[in-house]
Write a protein that binds this DNA or RNA. Structure first.
Length: 480
RNA sequence: GGCGCCGUAGCCAAGUGGUAAGGCCCGGGACUGCAAAUCCCGUAUGCAUCGGUUCGACUCCGAUCGGCGCCUCCA
């Protein structure tokens, strides 16, 4: 069984239920990184949003097939990788230099995803492995009269596609007015036509093609790989808002020009991130990569939570204060989890305000899913979780929850954590070691040697373990 | 110029034509050897401003102020 989930669709600008082409299955294409440098937290916000999207569908009962492209041929990649090569370098040497750069940063990127607990896509195609498919696609568009060659390059004729502009909601006249003429591409029929294949230039790696040596334009890779790996009808395609135009608009032109029908049903875009109220920019000194933050002592999962606890379609103002708030919020959830894993210490009731834990739990689950199903409303979903925590903490203080009730609560925490990945069950491998410290402290307390008892507690704290004395005299601990 | 978004407490933030969720921080209290965790109480007569529609608006309409995005580099 799968839940009905709705998402804002950029095509219609409305929140609409996602109705998969194949029942119970979701094909998802997300635009991945251009691998020439470290990803910054703005990039990572988008990938975290897409992970939230994917995990929500999975937790909602869908089989998700995810394809994320790795752009490994592009202007900046060429610029950075070819800098050290002599003018007479061979094409093979140029390709080698480019591959060395992109493989390095691809590995670093995948490493960052793992650090943030972002699930890896089933398909991670590199653009350079699909040059043949891109060429075929361009030839197909040429045959359909939607593409034309000029001096070794090939361009897309947007006048040939009536729906051009449907995603970005731009009309052709508005584009004409706003378009800037790129002196490098003056040979186009119309300044708004975009390049599918770029004629090779000296000093650049190139591939052979029917139009001579050259390299693919930026947009064509996503159309070629998306159609190859996910098919002619894709359920969801997503990226950052900046990709709406021109990138995704052009993908639609390429794919639908070729297919003759709708390619992607649901386009979903994540908003940008600002830093301390300003645009992130190297010149402002507020430009951060994940590694920068880790060096500053930031817990990557706190970053994950800070980003995912805000709505994906709102500009997020990243701040270190916000990160602290995220860390403290997580502490509350994790402490509650630990409490549910242990046994109840509360009295046996009766309590005037007692509730029925399993009923209250189902209410929270219902609220949680209603919020997630409504365009991934994480702030509201988390509110449902926090009010549950409050109510059950109070309940457990007065009328201890039973083992079965605690297990049911833990199952819900796991269900939510399958999406947020921030409060997993922790390994109990430290148990024996910690218990020895607790025993030493117990002995000191029995002798009313408070100084020694505090010293042991401080020792544990230095190891990242926080102790909690319970009413019945037992001692619990958690990672602090 | 065109298209669009946003402005809710110290900070973050949801929400809705019917009388302001949640998190963080802060203050007081309970519990504790002291803590930690937890609980209880308190913290926006008001949702940028000014008009309008309405029995009723933070929510709809208009205007104004402020911040932001896109209109072929961009997550």
């Amino acid at each position: 069984m799968h839940r009905t989930l709705s998402l804002f669709n950029t095509l219609t600008r409305r929140v609409e239920p996602v109705v998969p082409v194949e029942e119970g299955k979701i094909s998802l294409y997300t635009c991945g990184p251009t691998v020439y440098n470290f990803a910054h937290i703005g990039n990572l916000r988008t990938f975290l949003f897409q992970d939230l999207l994917k995990r929500t569908f999975r937790a909602g009962g869908y089989a998700v097939t995810h394809c994320m492209n790795i752009t490994d041929v592009e202007d900046k990649i060429i610029r950075d990788s070819q800098a050290g090569l002599p003018a007479e370098a061979t094409n093979e040497q140029r390709h080698g230099a480019m591959t060395a750069l992109t493989e390095r940063f691809t590995a670093i990127f995948l490493d960052d995803l793992e650090t943030l607990r972002i699930q890896k896509a089933e398909f991670l195609p590199r653009a350079t492995a699909y040059i043949g498919q891109m060429i075929h696609l361009i030839q197909d568009l040429e045959a359909k009269g939607l593409a034309y060659p000029r001096e070794g390059s090939v361009y897309y004729r947007i006048a040939g596609l009536p729906q051009y502009g449907c995603l970005a909601h731009l009309d052709r006249e508005g584009m004409q007015a706003g378009a800037s003429v790129d002196a490098d591409e003056y040979e186009r029929d119309s300044v708004t036509d975009f390049v599918l294949w770029k004629a090779g230039k000296p000093g650049e790696p190139s591939w052979d093609s029917p139009w001579g040596p050259g390299r693919p334009g930026w947009h064509i890779e996503c159309s070629a790989m998306g159609m190859e790996l996910l098919g002619e009808r894709v359920d969801i395609h997503s990226g950052g808002v900046d990709l709406i135009f021109p990138h995704h608009e052009n993908e639609i032109a390429q794919s639908e020009g070729c297919l003759g029908h709708r390619w992607v049903n649901h386009w979903v875009h994540g908003e940008f991130l600002m830093v301390e109220g300003q645009k992130m920019a190297k010149s402002l000194g507020n430009f951060f990569t994940l590694r920068d933050l880790i060096e500053k002592g930031v817990d990557p999962i706190a970053l994950r939570y800070a980003i995912q606890s805000n709505h994906y379609r709102k500009v997020l103002n990243f701040s270190f204060e916000g990160l602290r708030a995220a860390e403290n919020s997580l502490k509350r959830i994790r402490a509650f989890r630990k409490r549910m894993e242990g046994e109840g210490q509360g009295g046996g009731g009766p309590w005037a305000e007692a509730l029925v834990p399993l009923v209250r739990l189902e209410q929270a689950r219902t609220e949680f899913w209603a919020a997630m199903a409504d365009d991934l409303n994480t702030p509201e979903a988390l509110a449902a979780l926090f009010t549950l925590i409050s109510d059950l903490n109070a309940q457990d203080d007065h009328v201890a929850l039973t083992r079965d009730e605690r297990n049911a609560v833990l199952a819900f925490l796991d269900e939510a954590d399958a999406i947020f990945a921030a409060w997993p069950q922790e390994a109990a491998s430290l148990d024996a070691e910690v218990e020895a410290f607790i025993e030493a402290r117990r002995a000191a307390k029995a002798a009313k040697n408070w100084a020694e008892a505090d010293r042991v507690r401080d020792q544990l704290k230095a190891l990242g373990i926080v102790l909690e004395d319970r009413k019945d005299g037992s001692v619990g601990w958690r990672k602090g």
